[in-house]
């Protein structure tokens, strides 16, 4: 893109980060009392709220999809009107949101032990409060924390990260400006302890020689993300358990 340098000559990105550096991540579990599980994740300026309801009796409009041997996962993604720089008229129900919801549903179907909850339904609701790139990744991370908070059985954490390629260097955890620059962008969701890729998506054009490099940096980014999430969950569990065991 003319005039916009994604990497300066000294090797710094537009927001001052190094190419392999993630944005500042802050997260918290148990934000809402009404939901079975909830979480709040901030990745730089991207802010997401996730809440989980379930497993519970399927609602009337999902009756047709009841499965006798596993649970159905219902995912809804919505972006607040004030989340992006341009005011968004339709918070949900447009193609992009439905698409995103379907991807997230697919991601978690492979990771939640659905066979433990037959004939039930699990709802995953994601709300973007502020959008600054890597929306899918922030949503997956928030949903993972919310599922852990809800006590639903999972095989492993699911951490997601994005990367893009500019002037031969991979940039990890891209923000909105870097996303709109038009370079190829790869997002992937990974189960870090089992070292498996659950979902991946590539937008743009990437040469086959370079795809390995980008994928490696995405996986490294996911592992960094995992370290932060694991620490948050452990702290939360320790705090809660201290009151449990003393009573």
């Amino acid at each position: 893109m003319a005039g916009l340098e994604l990497i300066s000559d000294q090797g710094y990105r537009i927001d001052g980060r190094k190419p392999t550096e993630l944005r500042q991540i802050r997260c918290r579990l148990g934000v809402f009392t009404q939901a079975d599980g909830s979480s709040y994740v901030e990745q730089g300026n991207t802010k997401v709220l996730a809440s989980i309801y379930g497993p519970h009796e399927p609602s009337s409009n999902m009756r047709s999809k009841i499965s006798h041997d596993k649970c159905i996962i219902n995912c809804e993604y919505s972006q607040a009107s004030f989340s992006s720089a341009e005011r968004k008229h339709r918070p949900r129900g447009d193609r992009k949101s439905l698409d995103m919801a379907a991807h997230i549903k697919q991601t978690f179907e492979s990771c939640i032990h659905t066979t433990l909850y037959p004939r039930s339904q699990i709802d995953i609701f994601l709300q973007i409060l502020q959008s600054d790139g890597s929306n899918y990744c922030a949503c997956v991370n928030a949903a993972t924390l919310a599922i852990v908070d809800a006590g639903i059985a999972m095989k492993d954490y699911v951490c997601a990260c994005s990367a893009s390629l500019a002037k031969g260097t991979t940039l990890v955890d891209i923000n909105h400006v870097e996303e709109s620059a038009g370079c190829a962008e790869l997002s992937a969701a990974v189960m870090p302890k089992l070292n498996k890729i659950v979902y991946s998506e590539l937008n743009g054009r990437l040469h086959e020689d370079e795809i390995g490099k980008v994928l490696d940096s995405v996986v490294l980014g996911c592992n960094d993300m995992f370290a932060v999430m694991e620490r948050t969950v452990r702290e939360h569990v320790e705090e809660t358990v201290s009151n449990f065991t003393h009573s």
């Binding site: 809402f32 009404q34 939901a35 909830s38 709220l49 809440s51 309801y53 609602s59 009337s60 409009n61 809804e76 919505s78 607040a80 009107s81 918070p91 949900r92 709802d123 609701f125 709300q127």
Partner: peptide, 14 residues
Amino acid sequence: FHVDCSPNATPAAQ
């Protein structure tokens, strides 16, 4: 004025 109800706020059947 525009009001939107996030899906977080409504657990029950739609």
